[in-house]
Amino acid sequence: MFYPNSPQTSPQLTQIPYGQQYAMMQRQIQQPYHPFATTEPQARLYPYHYQGPIQQEQGGFITQQSTAASPQYVQMRVTPVDQSIMSGYPNQTANGSSSSSFNYNIHPQQQQQQQQQQQQLRHHAMPVGSVPLQDDRYRKQLIVNYLAPDVTSTDLHELFSRFGELDGARIIYDKQTNMSKGYGFVYFCHAEDAKEAVERMSGYEFHGKWLKVGYSTNPLNIVPSNSSPYVHAGSRGAAG
């Protein structure tokens, strides 16, 4: 039997160049792979992502010199942007860049009308829970959420009447099932009393439920100042 490094198959040491006398086997001759043993700084910083320098080929596509990437890492192929796409944008300079302001050559009167329309939209648009300043009635009506099913309009009136005089209180019921929808409205005579009720009743436990109280901004629920107070009856038909 002959071994790869046996004296019968191995040459004389004098015939082997210096430095390879003890590297006779194939696994010894093959050098191990060192990912950080390279002179390129990109490979030292990113050993798993770097795959060699990027070269520009004919046709405008950018390719990489090395083989496919590892399945664990996804390499994105980048193509140059066609400058003709950006030619339609206004205020574009000769080098292809555009300024931040756009001039669509709008007539001054049209621009003024658009600004007025935007101001009107901001004036009428009102986020949930906010209180408008032009109508004091919005500051007097509250919406009470997360009410228990057994709470009546009379219970709601008695709960909030300790903060001040009320114009009314009612629970909203479903017309088909005649069941409470879980929320109601309270109408105060003074805005200061309503503000105190919002601050003190939010998070209050009532009939096993934690109440959420806020201003009601729905104009359909506003009680006119010259109208008669609501009837605080315990029956659902009268309260709904």
Rank of each mutant, 00 (worst) to 15 (best):
S228F: 14
Y187L: 00
A169Q: 06
Y48W: 12
N221H: 13
F36H: 06
S87P: 06
R137S: 08
A197Y: 06
Q109S: 10
D135W: 06
A194Y: 07
D155V: 03
Q75M: 15
L133G: 08
T14V: 13
E196Q: 07
L142I: 03
F163D: 02
Q21M: 12
Q111S: 05
S98D: 11
D167L: 02
I171T: 02
H190L: 05
S225Q: 09
Q28K: 02
R170L: 01
G208M: 02
S161P: 12
P7D: 07
V74A: 11
L159C: 03
P132E: 06
D155K: 05
L220S: 03
R137Y: 02
L13C: 09
N218S: 02
E165V: 11
P80C: 14
Q83S: 09
R200C: 13
A125V: 14
T217W: 02
V223Y: 14
V144A: 00
N95K: 02
L147N: 06
Q55Y: 15
R162A: 11
P17L: 14
I85M: 10
Y48M: 08
S97W: 14
Q64I: 15
P127K: 07
D193L: 01
I85V: 10
P53M: 08
Q118Y: 09
R236H: 03
L211Y: 01
K212M: 01
D174E: 08
H107W: 14
P17K: 02
V186S: 00
Q115P: 10
Q72E: 07
F102P: 06
D193Y: 04
M86Q: 03
Q58E: 04
G52W: 14
S161W: 09
L13Y: 14
K212H: 02
G168E: 00
G59L: 13
Q21G: 07
R77D: 05
K195E: 07
Q72K: 05
A239Q: 04
L220W: 02
P47L: 15
G237T: 03
I171A: 02
R137W: 01
N95D: 10
V128C: 06
Q42V: 13
E199Y: 05
W210K: 03
S227K: 03
Y50H: 05
Q112F: 13
N5R: 06
V131P: 05
M24D: 03
Y187N: 00
Q72P: 07
G240I: 14
V78I: 13
Y215M: 01
A197T: 01
V131Q: 08
S100A: 11
G184F: 00
D167V: 01
G19D: 13
D193H: 07
A148H: 12
E57N: 09
G164F: 01
K195S: 08
G182A: 11
H232A: 03
V151T: 05
I143A: 00
S84L: 14
R44C: 15
K209E: 00
A169K: 01
S10A: 13
